[in-house]
Design a binder for these strands. Sequence first.
DNA 1: AGTTGTTTCATACGACAGTTTAAAACATGT
DNA 2: ACATGTTTTAAACTGTCGTATGAAACAACT
Lengths: 224, 224
Amino acid sequence: MAISGQKQGNSGPDKPVQDRLLDAAEQLFAENGFDGASVRDIASAAGCNIAAVNYYFGGKDKLYTEVWRRQLVQMRDARLQAIEQVLSESNGKPSLEDLLKSFANAFIGPFVDESRSRWLMRLMAREMIDQHVHVNVFVEEVIKPTMSAMGGALMKACPGLEESKIPLLIFFLAGQLIHIVHIKAMYEQTEMAEMPAFDLTDAVENIVKFSAAGIRAYAEEKTE
Amino acid sequence: MAISGQKQGNSGPDKPVQDRLLDAAEQLFAENGFDGASVRDIASAAGCNIAAVNYYFGGKDKLYTEVWRRQLVQMRDARLQAIEQVLSESNGKPSLEDLLKSFANAFIGPFVDESRSRWLMRLMAREMIDQHVHVNVFVEEVIKPTMSAMGGALMKACPGLEESKIPLLIFFLAGQLIHIVHIKAMYEQTEMAEMPAFDLTDAVENIVKFSAAGIRAYAEEKTE
DNA sequence: AGTTGTTTCATACGACAGTTTAAAACATGT
DNA sequence: ACATGTTTTAAACTGTCGTATGAAACAACT
């Protein structure tokens, strides 16, 4: 069993087998769920033999964990980078709207980017329920860093904010963002007659406006 | 195959087989997912033979659909009733906070009520992803009636609201509510050290405050 | 050329899934 | 008591799943 020393083509359809497996698994797991995606389908989509997943990853579970971990770090980095960028561009004193908008776009970015993986949301939503990989790694690798960075940035954008309420406020923001991605997916799968069309970027703008007002309701508290 | 004419004991452990199957299936589907819950387990939990699910429901899929439909109507009724009650108690002019609070409690009520079914959220979250029963019935039976009733009530509580934004605002509210239920579930499954304890009723109160401010940001628009 | 270590392949294995079947048990009306 | 229709049961059927195996193909180095 060899792990290192690959050719690392990194482009084109002749990537190393591990990468092809990870890519195929990411898509199929997200589309059909952990149980719904068979090892045979994954191997077939990756253009290799069934035994490859056991040979390289030691089993279906390990492959899934690896797929998941790959998404986690990228998700966290995108969010952290978006926050840092807003902070640096505003010399440490960003407007609340700018911060929210940048965070929101980084948050839902992976879910709408068709070129990379628009199945990520389903993959993540499944994981929130099925818990194949322990919750702790998600908390430690994504939630905690994100909450910490975003909380700090919020304090700078809204100096009057009560610190103890900040995690809750971020939860509210994240909840709205996740939900509109779900709604968007629902719109794509059914003909919602008599209901208005759904535009994601428009929804994000409104979340920014909505949440900015909600957050300010907590910032103005201290001044009264 | 007989469907009608049961004893309808309606209490105690000697309910008709169909009901026992539905109850057991509801719990096991929610706990382990559609694939994770085997017909054998369900029948065993219901205290009857494996063939009963095919005999009475015509297959695992049909049983699942029936479980789901049973939850849908009850969910919708709880929400509609909460809205109507607030409207009647305030003679048609409810305060925004009262309306939001009542709706929020009706919304998350089924998810926290341990006596009835605290697995409902997982069941519903799964369904949002896996789509075993067509989305249309969910849209028609729950979303549309809820949006219609809540939208009308919102207009009465906030006369200045722009009507076209109302669906979006309700989505935001629902997104926050669903998310805190998820967060609550995460807290219960891991030891979130260094993170504050999570109280659902407290979170709901804050959602009311947060969303009331957010909604008013759209109500005061017309007056400017 | 030959040896060695790695990767691919077709195939087989055991387990468990949902469903079907046919007989037994039961209830009901005559 | 009998006949009739309904429900329950145990066992078998068919298919698919994840994994294991051992041989073939390949690459690299002596």
